[in-house]
Amino acid sequence: MSSPILIDNVQKVFKTPGGDVVALKDINLTIQPGEFVCLLGPSGCGKSTLLNAVAGFQAPSDGQIVIDQKAIRSPGPDRGMVFQEYALFPWMSVAQNIAFGLEVQKKEKAEIGLVVNQLLDLLHLKDFRDRFPKDLSGGMRQRVAIARVLALDSPIMLMDEPFGALDALTRRNLQDELLRIWEKLGKTILFVTHSIEESIYLADRIVVMTYRPGTVKRDQIVAMPRPRDPASPAFNDLKRELGRLVMEEQQRHADAEMKLAAVD
């Protein structure tokens, strides 16, 4: 069985010519197996930095992230990542993109073919299997990116504002797909977003982060049953409450930018 993600006293400091920037400070979180957690906050709150640390792209300056009793040091297929920019390999067809992670693991051809077909089915991509990414819409590309990560069959899925570049309708559509897949496959999902509504619609738990230094401002359980109705009073109460928290941080972000501009 999969293990929780333990984020243990993580700090991240970026050295810049203008001095040190504390991106993350004293982050302590435990994410249970099968939990859907959203990291919510304005730009510059360190939510992507935290996700990159879990992915293993950037080591924390202090503290550690532990999965399966091992501290994370490098990226790996046990933590598949979906990027906002899709990051599909444009020279590979849809099917080849999905198969690539399995080929890297030297799985047998027949097995790869089977998995690819299942995923094409699951994400309604069957008619697109031999297309190249350039011929797909943004929503379709993100479906392929999700399928590529699912092919790894990793217990953990990391998502960095995956639906940020999509239009509102496509976005809702993919959110529903993601929930359907999550309920079916029982993955642990760590999902970065700056959309309050998106986080309430999706998550079991929302971690609101502060603007520099990035700390946990609120760790909010969302108990509403799914499918959630964004027009319901409970949804809107929570939206108002989280909106207030996020906007406080957004204001600090805006103030800091103004101050920086004034110095220039």
């Binding site: 992915a55 792209f57 490098s74 990226p75 790996g76 297929p77 933590r79 598949g80 990542m81 990027f83 920019e85 990051a87 599909l88 390999f89 690539f100 992670g101 890297v104 693991q105 590529r148 790894l152």
Partner: peptide, 19 residues
């Protein structure tokens, strides 16, 4: 972004180069 995606999929140095 391609290099990051590939490392995330567990790609080693040689495969990174050739593929």
């Amino acid at each position: 972004i391609y290099l990051r995606a590939a490392r995330n999929l567990g790609v080693g140095q040689w495969t990174m180069f050739t593929r």
